[in-house]
Write a protein that binds this DNA or RNA. Structure first.
Lengths: 229, 229, 229, 229
DNA sequence: AATGAATGAGGCTTCATTCAT
DNA sequence: GATGAATGAAGCCTCATTCAT
């Protein structure tokens, strides 16, 4: 048969019935434990205490399970954000509130966190392990830059170097990924100055004062006027 | 699946032979185009102009192909970093140099960038698409916080909101992921204050006003006194 | 799969209740539209406006649905035949009457016709499509034989070649099938002469000239004397 | 993955290699024994002495196996027809030759015959069994017509009634099927006269002259000039 | 070294049938 | 009688890996 018999999948059957919720919860646990690719529908079904076919009664398949899981989580997160943000004064305080919600959200549900943060992004653990040493070296380099910057007096003495490195790397990383996915037309190098300003300020540099930025664009091997501090 | 079936694989056979390099290059192109899970060893072999068996002459398998690819890239990146960092004065300038290297590294090789930034982390495109709307909403919320902060005078008038959001989200995200992977024992909430300080400063807030942090622990919907700016 | 799990199934419950008839009618429509293997019990139930379980109240299963459908149809056909045949004089006229009933029976109910003639015999449409060209070639060959026979003056000038080919092929085909199913012990080749006589006469050949039949047994590419006509 | 990775299937690998032939032969045997729907790819592979995957190396799937099998057979049949038909004088003799080839073709390879004649057309044996009695009754009726026709002196005294019935039913059946598949626009009833003429003649009726035919067409435009011959 | 045909375990999905309500 | 949610065995196909040449 080649006819696309579109399946009608009922995601909210009898109100009160928790079958789909149970399955979704089981999926979260199983995905968290074995990863998406390492999980079988049969595992999920078993964890939910239903038969395999029942999973397909409520979800279109394995992928739908993951997508629904993520979608619901993000929606729940947003739901929490809305009222709280509304009551908080705009500005630094509101930013703080948002960040707090973000952290608490994940901290509250470590299983979901694992799915969202790890399995949604990374390949098999064995691959992660294979990559780790090289990545570690990159992190070390970055931390050295931060440490030496503190020693030089440019950055805060009290800076948590590891945390700062994670924040910095993550931020850069997200920008690069976005560029790879062509979500912005600008060349990456054009982002250096604003990014550097943000980063430097983060760590306590005078006023972030990213100085001129001519030398990248100009191919320049940077003769940058030292900005007063 | 994860059993390490150690085999003696010669990774640098005849000096001058470029077979393994050709295969690695082909793998990068194929992975970039179809994703890791969507690529067949046969695809890689074809792209490299060798037989399937030849791939196994130089690599342990599909996974080894990806790991080697990533490892080499990160090592090349580090190699580039070392000398340049050595010549740059510690502090903000050196940070800038590092960030520049980071961006240029990816910009120079978009194929590799796609593997490292997208396929190494994300699942199938269809899943990404399924998640996108919800994620977009989260991003919108975050951008709103930044925008209102600018309007309130807390953040830089010249802030590139989209870029700042990517930087902020990426930074937070990396911290959370690290926490999920238990790379740090501290509870996430304990990181709020330093993170907020970094973020707020990034965007130009007076001094990141570390504020009190009591209300998280207390679950408080905290009424914090506005700190002078 | 084929184990006859006898169940007591009430095929004629409350007199007047038309549930089973409705289900049977629905089955005919659904089978006609999607083929037996392409139809789901759920499709039939929906088309009949009943629940899936109800189908099993009146029928033993999917197969019973088809068998009952066919059985009823053939019985109805027979019912129609009996009185009409009784009134018609034996011989060619009665044969004509029978054939008329046959054709009218199908023409009257195209849905049923499709089930009986197509879905009861043929596999999926995609397979039919795959076979069609080769079958077409066989038909072409057969039609060529008829056409050249007309040109040679052996067959009726007014013969409808396509129709004659269908009749001939169908007739041969049925004989072969019957032989395959071992409904007759005789070797196929022994049937050649009577079959040829019938066929040749059909098309108007003098008297079907039964000719010699020696050359089959002898494998001979027989040089048969042209019989006068 | 949603990318349609069209499979390149090599149907004629190394000349001399008989893998695909072996698989095809095994498929014929397995299909003949268990029917198409009752056969597993694993059965075919086992019968061919290869692994499951090997089947997919040469064929696109189960369906391709059946279609290729039928296609090849029909092509072989045609190949045999061509030369023999060319040497035979057009007309009744050539028709005889064709019919001979037809019968011999099936008789020679009973396994293939079973696939082509039975499994290509019929559903499960259990269904055939369920239908048989009703069909038997229909056949009986038809045979009665023939027998009474002989008694009445209309048909040949020497007519093989069973064979004639098969020939007649098969011929009618094929015409009806063709009509159901809309291979001809004409209403079935319009075919009665030519069909009856063929049938009646087959059985030895005077000259086939099917008597009047007005009553079906009713509006009977059935004023057929009796063709003298 | 290089090849690529062969392998076969693995996993998603379907759907006829059941049975508690 | 009627329902339809739940079941789970069944089966096609994939593709990383091997190994005889």
């Amino acid at each position: 048969m080649t006819v696309a018999r579109r399946k009608i999948v009922r995601k909210t059957p009898l109100p009160g019935s928790s079958k789909p919720e149970a399955i979704l919860g089981a999926a979260a646990r199983v995905f968290a434990a074995k990863g998406y690719h390492g999980s079988l529908i049969a595992d999920v079904a078993r964890a939910a205490g239903v038969a395999v076919g029942t999973v397909y009664l409520y979800f279109e398949g394995k992928e739908d399970l993951l997508v629904t899981l993520v979608r619901r989580s993000l929606e729940a997160y947003l739901e929490e954000c809305r009222p709280l943000l509304a009551t908080e004064a705009a500005g630094s305080a509101r930013l703080r509130r948002l960040m707090q919600l973000h952290l608490v959200f994940y901290e509250r549900d470590p299983v979901l966190a694992k799915v969202l943060q790890v399995h949604l992004r990374e390949v098999e653990p064995s691959i992660r392990e294979g990559i780790r040493p090289a990545l570690r070296a990159v992190f070390d380099g970055m931390e050295e830059v931060l440490r030496s910057g503190i020693a030089a007096g440019d950055f805060d003495r009290g800076l948590d170097v590891k945390l700062a490195r994670k924040f910095l790397f993550g931020g850069l990383d997200a920008v690069v990924t976005s560029w790879v996915l062509r979500e912005s037309g600008r060349p990456l190098r054009a982002l250096l100055d604003p990014l550097h300003q943000m980063a430097a300020r983060s760590f306590g540099a005078a006023n972030g004062d990213a100085a001129d930025s001519s030398e990248i664009a100009s191919g320049g091997n940077g003769r940058r006027a030292r900005r007063g501090r």
